[in-house]
Structures are given as structure tokens and as C-alpha cells.
Write a protein that binds this DNA or RNA. Structure first.
Length: 740
DNA sequence: GTAGCCTTGAAC
DNA sequence: GTTCAAGGCTAC
């Protein structure tokens, strides 16, 4: 019997001795509140007195039942209190879910009246407890609880503990890419441990002094993880309920706006077994989200230098360390645990580093001059091109021109806006601070139409790179309001962005150069940073956040947003036209076979794989936008003070994305006629999984972003920090440090 | 070495 | 007092 089952039985046993009508304890209530979005609580209260009018209503009912394991059962018991449900029925929910479900639905109808059906508890209807909610992200075995930062099985917990405590040094006899699952997890300890780290298990949670008992400092993070998990479960549940609606006879498969599940007279219809989803990806998504929220932005990052003093000796990845080998390899290859690359500079771990040590002669010259960058042809669009700038770095000097232009660009509104710097402790010498405090020149319709000869064609040309070829802007049917707003906000920005596009498009990258044309690449990235900040500071919701928090969010998310933008752009190109090529932001096709640095080439290959994965998902413009916002609005970013507001936005967008993917993933619903032939050939993704699959790509994006950052930092270091000195890219690369 | 179960104790 | 995520124990 697993620990989980034992606990479950113990729990049921303990419940059997409780009074049925015993009130919920304060602790339980606090935990319930703590794990939920406050808005959900309000909705739940409302739901107590009204008929659910939408799936969201139903969802919130589900949420009421959908606590973490014990909490969930707790709620079930309390929800059933009025029904005088005995403990046998609770027990039956394990052994005979069908019977229990029928009973539950009957009781639900009796309790709520006709037309109101409680959403089946995941425990009995969706088998969440034994589904994606309980699969170890490392091996897929059954989860036994939170261990070292995330939900894992007992064996991986033990394995992780043994490895860290005993300073194991594993080796992989293959290519360090072994499949880790329940049956094969013993085969390769190296890859198993690697996966443990990749999914987010925390080294620092293993106690150096081996003190038993007690709780650790991750409590709040664990709670947040639970909240995220519940959020995902809710979305998943919406997908299934909607899919199920479409399958119900006489349901017409059409959402006529009356989305409440009126099962009057046939309460068991909903019992028709929901299509059992492939649940495993959700577990990975969950762990990925944990990775997203807990690793890189967490104050408890894996990085050794962030560890408590008493644990530091565990993680000194220096050659003389008593803890060598495996950690060096993982710090080297697993960027998910090495966000703060600057702190790693004392040890050589990165393949980029090795390469550049071996090829220093080719990487130190600035001899190649990118004329389009250093001397923007359109001097009119750069009124401050001759401005003074203290930056002496090549990229910094280039950036200053765009920065000066942006700072000096007049507001088209003709009004003066006071920037909200309340409570701000900004370092106004920072480029990012300066940019975020700028009043944004809002778009006007004129900006699209005044220049008939150049403007519109450019706008269309440019927008065609960003707007989905398979997305009809006029088709706003079934688009959640939140996403509609995002789209409007994004479109407004695209009109202003045109000012910079020409400058970007003039860039030319020559990959055949010995140095990979790194200066030009950095310059392009630097400009993209400007555009990204420009985009963010006028974006919906982001404008409402204090500027110092805006800066922190941007510094945490910038590279992932850039990568998502690039991937999106590439996805808009027919696959056949860019085989083995990266579609650069300047429109250039970069053949990765021309990349000479093997590490960079490998990174490029991973990027293209990621692009391919997104292609297969057939993600659409609203989904792309939502993903960017989800990356940007990360409440776990270190030092952010408006976490609840940010989390609120995150949840809002998550819900909207879930709703949209459910409504638009069905090829018959989405605008399949406008898909490219290559897209039509792609097998449509299971509609119940698309939401998860999209979010599942975020860890990949993060890994690619982290490796890219490491690469850029190494390049900069190779040039004594002068390559990116004084430019926005350099500032972004320094991450949160400069802001703390 | 693995993995299931047990014990512990700080946080709640 | 309860919870739950640590470490420990031990059969395999």
C-alpha cells in the first residue's frame, strides 16, 4: 500500500469518527482561502444561492470541491453534510465510483433543485486524484506528496534525497537523454537526477544537517503550487465538460449561450463517462509551472550562492569541491537551475565557455561593422542620433540611438501624463527605468493611414509577420473578453511599433563570419528589447502596475517574451520555406547549418524543435498573446510587491486561454480554411490537451532563454563586460541584481 | 541501491 | 493540536 493510500485510508478512518456536522476548523478555512483566488471564494458564495449560468459557475462549484487531496475530501464531507452522507459512501467513492457518482448526482439534484447539478467531484467523476494530479513529473509513478519542491512519488523523493545527501556522482553510459519512467527509472541515475532537477526539485530542500521533522521555508511556494494546480485542473475540467456537452445526444454540440448543465429529468446523462483524457501531460504541465514559478524567480533558487549559509558547501561546483561531478554537469547543462548566470562566472561549466576559450581569437574583433545599425539610414526617424551617450560599448552606442529616439518621441496625444512612481525606488540611471517611465506615444489611426505609400504597406508587411495567417481579426466569436482586450491592446501597439521596424529590417546577420556576427546579433537583440519594453509598457494590465514592479517583471521575462515572439513569427511562415532556418526578427532566414559554434548550433536546433512543437499545436494569435502575458505576469518574481494583482491577471488570462483553446481547437470550429497546407496536414491536437500543451512549452522556452542568456553573458564576459555595457540588453542580462 | 513505510518536529 | 515535508529505517 502506498503512502498516499495509507494516508487516505487513515484520513477516511479519522473522518469516520468525526461528527458529520462538525464545523470546519479555522485552519481548514484558512487553508481553503489561502489556496484559492479570492474571487473564486466570492463566486462560490454566490453559487450557493443561484443556479449556475455558465461553465465558469460550474467550475467554481468544482473548485469548491477541488482542494488538494485531504482538503478535497474535507470539502466533500462538508458538502455532503446536509445529505447525511455516511462514511461508507465516501469509501465507495474509491471502490465504486459509478455508484457513488449516481448517488451524488441524485443528492445534488435533491439538494440544489432541478437544473442545478454539482459538477462531479474530481474524486469520483474525473479521477483527478488518481490521474494527472498524482503522476510524478520525474517518472510518472503515483505522487505521494510534496517533496523537495514539488509533487513527486516516494521513490523519486528517496532517490533525490540519497543523491544529494550522499553526494552521488553518476554517469550516463548513453547520451544523457535516457527515458525516465516508472519501469526504467533505475536504469540511469544520471538522467533520473537530471530530470529531477529539470522538473524543479530543490537541492536546497535537502537538509545538510539532516534535522528531521518540521516544515521548511517553501510552505508558501507549495501553497502557490497547489493553487496553480487547481487552476489547471479547473481549466482541464472546463474542457472536459464542454467536450462532454458536445457528445451528449440532443446536445446539438452547440453552445447556444445557455451553458449551464441542465440535466433535469436525466441527471445521469452527465454520468456518461467523460472521455478519459491523457492525463500525464497535465502533471508535467503542473511540474513545469512549478518550475516556472519556483525556480528561476524564486528566492530559493537552486543556485548555490543563494543557499542558506549552512548549506552552501553542498553546492560549490568548483573543481576542488567535495561535491564535484554530477552537480558540475548539471549546472552546466541544466539552465533551469542556473538563472543567475553572473554568479556562476567563477566556474567553467558551460559549453559556450569552453568553445570561446578555444576560439578567442575569432571572437574578440569588432572589425565587422554593421552599417545599417551603426548608421541608421533613416536619420529622420532618429532625431537624437547624434545625442551624447556615455556608453562606450559597440552595442550600447547603437542602442542609445533608439533609446534617445524613444525618449524624445513626442506624444501623439499632446497631453502630459504623470508617470506613477509611487513607492518606487527606481534607479533612474537605468535604461529600463527610463524607458518604463516614458509616456507612451499612443497609437492613432493616423499612424496607419497617413503614409499611404510606405506606411500601410509596411504595416501590413510587418503585421503579417505577427498576425496569424490563420486568424481572422474580424472573427471575434467565442473569444473571451479578456483575450479580445489583449488583441486590441496588441493591435494598438503594432501601429506605433511601425516607427522602429524599418530600422530592424535593415539589419543583416552574416552567420558565416568566424564570430557568428555576434555584434550584429546583440544589436538586434538589444533593439528587440527596446521594442519589448515598448510593447509591455502600453500593454493591458501592465500599465496598472507600479513601475518598479514593471521593471522586475520585465527583467524576469524579457528573454522568454522575445523567444515567444520569434517562435510566433516563424510559425507564421510556411514550414517548407524555412527548413533548418531560424526566421530572424529582421525577416532574415538564418540557416542553422551555417552556425559554426557547435553549442550555439545545438541551441538553435532546440529552438527549431520548439518552433516545430508550436506548429503542431496550431496555436493561434490569441493564444500567442496570452502566452506572452502569462510569462510577463509572474507573481513569483523576486521582490515584486503587487503579487496579488499580478496573480489576478495571470489567473484571468489563464482562464481565458483555457476557454479559448477549448472553443477553438476543434478544427471544425477554428478557421481551418485559412490554414496553410502544411498546417492542415498537422494532426489536430486533442482539444482537451491543447491548453496543457501550450503551457507545457513554457519550460522549453525558458530553457532556451536561459541558455541564450548564458551565451550572451559569456560573450560579454569574454569582452570584459564591454560589449553590452550601457545597453538595454546588457542591463536585462544582469537580471534582478541591479534592481535589488 | 531502491522504495515503501515510519518518525519527527517546525510551522500553522 | 494538527499538518505535512523533512529524514530514518528496512525489506527487498
Amino acid at each position: 500500500m502506498s503512502e498516499y493510500e495509507r494516508k487516505r485510508k487513515n484520513y477516511i478512518r479519522s473522518k469516520s469518527t468525526q461528527k458529520i456536522d462538525s464545523p470546519q476548523s479555522n485552519d481548514e478555512l484558512e487553508e481553503t482561502i489561502d489556496d484559492k483566488n479570492p474571487s473564486m471564494m466570492i463566486d462560490n458564495n454566490i453559487l450557493m444561492t443561484k443556479t449556475p449560468q455558465s461553465l465558469d459557475d460550474l467550475l467554481d462549484v468544482d473548485d469548491n470541491n477541488n482542494e488538494n487531496d485531504e482538503d478535497k475530501e474535507e470539502n466533500e464531507n462538508h458538502n455532503n453534510t446536509n445529505d447525511d452522507v455516511d462514511n461508507d459512501s465516501t469509501h465507495l467513492s474509491i471502490d465504486d465510483p459509478t455508484t457513488t457518482e449516481q448517488t451524488r448526482q441524485k443528492k445534488s439534484i435533491e439538494k440544489n433543485g432541478p437544473g442545478v447539478l454539482d459538477v462531479p467531484s474530481p474524486d469520483v467523476g474525473l479521477d483527478v486524484k488518481f490521474g494527472f494530479n498524482d503522476l510524478c513529473p520525474v517518472c510518472g509513478d503515483k505522487v505521494s506528496g510534496f517533496h523537495y519542491g514539488l509533487l513527486t512519488c516516494e521513490s523519486c523523493k528517496g532517490f533525490f534525497k540519497r543523491t544529494v545527501q550522499n553526494k552521488k556522482n553518476y554517469q550516463c553510459i548513453d547520451k544523457q537523454q535516457c527515458q525516465i519512467d516508472k519501469t526504467q527509472r533505475k536504469r540511469c541515475a544520471f538522467c533520473r537526477f537530471k530530470k529531477c532537477l529539470q522538473v524543479g526539485m530543490k537541492l536546497e530542500a535537502v537538509r545538510e544537517n539532516r534535522v528531521r521533522g518540521g516544515r521548511n521555508k517553501f510552505g508558501p511556494l507549495y501553497r502557490r503550487s497547489r493553487a496553480l494546480r487547481q487552476q489547471i485542473m479547473r481549466q482541464h475540467f472546463v474542457s472536459m465538460v464542454k467536450a462532454q456537452q458536445n457528445m451528449i445526444p440532443n446536445g446539438n454540440g452547440i453552445d447556444n449561450g445557455q451553458t449551464s448543465l441542465d440535466m433535469t429529468g436525466n441527471g445521469l446523462q452527465v454520468k456518461s463517462e467523460p472521455e478519459q483524457p491523457n492525463l500525464h501531460p497535465f502533471q508535467h504541465m503542473y511540474s513545469s509551472l512549478q518550475t516556472t514559478t519556483n525556480i528561476n524567480h524564486s528566492p530559493h533558487t537552486h543556485h548555490p550562492n543563494n543557499l542558506p549559509h549552512h548549506q552552501q558547501h553542498h553546492y560549490q561546483p568548483q573543481k576542488s569541491s567535495s561535491f564535484p561531478g554530477v552537480y558540475q554537469d548539471f549546472f552546466n547543462t541544466n539552465s533551469s537551475i542556473t538563472n543567475n548566470t553572473r554568479l556562476q562566472q567563477s566556474f567553467q561549466l558551460n559549453p559556450f565557455d569552453t568553445y570561446y576559450k578555444n576560439s578567442s581569437a575569432s571572437s574578440t574583433s569588432y572589425g565587422h561593422s554593421p552599417p545599417s545599425l551603426l548608421l541608421p539610414s533613416n536619420s529622420n526617424s532618429n532625431p537624437a542620433s547624434g545625442s551624447s551617450n556615455s556608453s562606450s560599448s559597440p552595442v550600447g552606442q547603437i542602442s542609445s540611438k533608439l533609446l534617445d529616439y524613444q525618449i524624445s518621441s513626442p506624444s501623439t496625444t499632446g497631453t502630459t501624463t504623470t508617470v506613477n512612481t509611487t513607492n518606487s525606488t527606481l534607479n533612474t540611471s537605468s535604461i529600463l527605468s527610463t524607458l518604463t517611465m516614458q509616456q507612451h506615444p499612443m497609437a492613432t489611426n493616423d499612424s496607419m493611414h497617413t503614409d499611404t505609400n510606405n506606411g500601410i504597406s509596411s504595416v501590413y508587411f510587418y503585421n503579417n509577420q505577427y498576425l496569424a495567417t490563420n486568424y481572422d481579426m474580424n472573427d471575434t466569436n467565442n473569444i473571451p473578453e479578456t483575450l479580445t482586450k489583449l488583441i486590441e491592446s496588441d493591435q494598438a501597439y503594432r501601429c506605433t511599433e511601425i516607427r522602429y521596424i524599418e530600422d530592424i529590417q535593415q539589419i543583416h546577420i552574416d552567420l558565416t563570419r568566424d564570430d557568428g556576427d555576434i555584434l550584429v546579433v546583440c544589436s538586434l537583440l538589444d533593439k528587440l528589447c527596446f521594442l519589448m519594453v515598448d510593447w509591455a509598457r502600453q500593454s493591458l494590465y501592465f500599465k496598472d502596475i507600479q513601475i518598479d514592479n514593471q521593471i522586475k517583471l520585465l527583467k524576469a521575462a524579457w528573454i522568454e517574451i522575445l523567444i515567444i515572439d520569434l517562435i510566433w513569427k516563424q510559425c507564421q511562415q510556411p514550414k517548407e520555406t524555412c527548413v533548418n532556418c531560424i526566421v530572424s526578427a529582421n525577416g532574415q532566414l538564418l540557416n542553422i547549418n551555417l552556425i559554426q559554434n557547435p553549442a550555439v548550433k545545438k541551441l538553435a536546433e532546440r529552438y527549431l524543435q520548439c518552433v516545430n512543437d508550436f506548429r503542431q499545436l496550431q496555436w493561434q494569435y490569441p493564444e500567442y498573446l496570452a502566452l506572452k502575458y502569462l510569462v510577463l505576469f509572474d507573481p513569483d518574481v523576486q521582490g515584486v510587491t503587487e503579487s496579488s494583482l499580478i496573480e489576478e491577471v495571470q489567473e484571468k488570462i489563464t482562464n481565458a486561454l483555457g476557454e479559448y483553446t477549448t472553443d477553438h481547437n476543434n478544427p471544425s470550429i477554428s478557421n481551418s480554411t485559412s490554414r496553410s497546407p502544411s498546417q492542415q496536414q498537422q494532426a489536430p491536437t486533442n482539444e482537451q490537451e491543447k491548453f496543457a500543451c501550450i503551457l507545457l512549452k513554457l519550460p522549453d522556452v525558458r530553457l532556451i532563454g536561459n541558455d541564450l542568456k548564458k551565451f550572451l553573458q559569456l560573450i560579454d564576459r569574454k569582452h570584459d563586460g564591454k560589449l553590452l555595457d550601457g545597453c538595454l540588453l546588457g542591463e536585462m542580462l544582469n537580471g534582478l541584481q541591479s534592481n535589488n
